[in-house]
């Protein structure tokens, strides 16, 4: 699967409180959550972001709370994929579980500008910066996680598993 979109760049340690502030957690509606995505760090983000755009960030993206509302808000805002130098572990799990594609890539951030157009090939794990012509690769998901992604998220995966009568 290939994704193409313009980049929105963020720094290190982007925490779940800035991705979706707690004051909006009195709902689980993705559309409502998406209205406040990144609000506390970039109030203009929701107006700028277009469907298919790609978020690029530094180390430890998604640190902090376990709120799954964070990847849901990002996905709901139209972002098709998040590329970061590294992800906090709960965010990583949550993104996979809800079907928000994420890639770890160290080099890209230092050679990218806001608004560059990226093409991401999820199955190959490759990223092409169409604006600069440079390409990058990221580590492939372990087989087990690919199964979850391919099943369409963890719920579909466990449905299949429970259906097969695992203990």
């Amino acid at each position: 699967m290939k994704l193409t979109g313009k980049t929105h760049i963020f720094g290190d340690n982007i925490d779940t409180d800035v991705i979706i502030p707690a004051r909006y957690l009195n709902t689980i509606d993705p559309a409502e959550l998406a209205l406040h995505c990144m609000e506390d760090i970039d109030a203009a983000f929701v107006d700028k972001v277009q469907k298919g755009d790609i978020m690029v960030a530094g180390y430890n993206f998604g640190c902090g709370s376990s709120r799954e509302h964070a990847p849901i808000a990002i996905k709901g805002s139209g972002i098709s994929c998040v590329i970061a130098r590294s992800f906090a572990r709960i965010f990583y799990r949550n993104a996979i579980n809800i079907g928000l594609p994420i890639l770890e890539c160290d080099e890209i951030l230092s050679e990218i500008s806001e608004g560059d157009c990226l093409e991401v090939d999820l199955s190959a794990g490759t990223i092409l910066n169409k604006t600069t012509g440079k390409s990058y690769s990221s580590e492939a998901f372990p087989e087990f996680m690919r199964e979850i992604i391919e099943a369409g998220g963890e719920i579909e995966y466990i449905k299949k598993k429970l259906g097969e009568g695992v203990d």
């Binding site: 902090g64 709370s65 376990s66 799954e68 709960i90 429970l162």
Partner: peptide, 27 residues
């Protein structure tokens, strides 16, 4: 995320998201 608190009791405990909670409750 602060589920890790119970490590004080010599347990393995860790924070996860809502979908993991759902599958945990089922499976």
């Amino acid at each position: 995320s602060h589920t890790c608190t119970y490590g004080a009791l010599g347990a393995f405990s860790t924070g996860i998201g809502s979908t993991d909670m759902a599958t945990g409750m089922a499976a």
